[in-house]
Design a binder for these strands. Structure first.
Ligand SMILES: [Mn+2]
Ligand SMILES: [Mn+2]
Ligand SMILES: [Zn+2]
Ligand SMILES: [Zn+2]
Lengths: 132, 132
DNA sequence: ACAGCTATTTAGAACCATTATAAAGTAGGA
DNA sequence: TCCTACTTTATAATGGTTCTAAATAGCTGT
């Protein structure tokens, strides 16, 4: 399915900027992790038109809200996003700030035994910090 | 052991400010989670002397580096700290931004099967997001 | 094709948690 | 007491993110 249809089906107009960002984010063999800053660089490298920083933020947030991107919970001055939207976990290399995917099967079965009244679990995320 | 000795043993001079912050952080029945902003409020409430914001940041970072506090990996515009330095996990209530401790036994055994060459695991942290 | 409406983009300003600066104050050893 | 390194402090700077409001572009009905 074309990105334009996917966007329209989500209630998002398929603008030139959104389509170009789609290509950068989703036309890849492998999924990847990125910060806004890194995405901005990638956009400058790969497309000739300029996309304003505000639009990059708007688009990433719109895609996240629609479920096409995920935020990764991590302590950093920047927000990390993930084009891999399946349930999975992460290694976080403290040395270089890079993330590595951990499949669910790499972590083993997680069973949260405690329950909070009136709340339900939205996600379970494991972060494994790595050092030398 | 008095806080002054604990601090001296860590190579930190037991200043009035650090001792007062120690009392707020560690003279409690239960451990708790906080942001710098919340700690600042608590300091204003509980002690009569003023402690500058810079000192609060300095002290929290010094205590974290010495292992008396932990940072909690989470997506928020503020950094969350924890006076519970044991290995444990968290519920994160997306509605009100509050954290709840999850004991290791509440999560079940975690076994990270994948290894990264030349790196060792420093910590394994689980974040369980809650919604209504 | 056109008009009208709303969504979107954009440059720039604002926001705000955090960090840096550098001057004044303090703890502890000689 | 004196010295020196450590600490505190007010304040400025930083930098990622969000806001603003004006210009532009996509879409629907005619
Ligand atoms: Mn280019
Ligand atoms: Mn007071
Ligand atoms: Zn991932
Ligand atoms: Zn905790």
């Amino acid at each position: 399915m074309k990105y334009s249809d996917k966007l329209r089906n989500s209630g998002l107009r398929p603008t030139k900027q959104r389509l170009q960002i789609c290509e950068i984010l989703f036309d890849t063999e492998k999924t990847f992790h990125f910060t806004i800053n890194e995405l901005e660089k990638k956009i400058k490298d790969k497309i000739d038109d300029k996309i304003s920083l505000a639009t990059i933020y708007n688009t990433v947030h719109a895609f996240e809200k629609k479920g096409y991107l995920k935020q990764i919970p991590i302590n950093s001055n920047q927000t990390y996003f993930d084009t891999n939207i399946t349930d999975h976990h992460h290694f976080y290399d403290l040395k270089d700030g890079k993330l590595i995917d951990l499949e669910n099967s790499d972590v083993g079965p997680l069973k949260i035994k405690r329950k909070i009244n009136g709340k339900k679990i939205k996600s379970i995320e494991v972060l494994v910090k790595l050092e030398d």
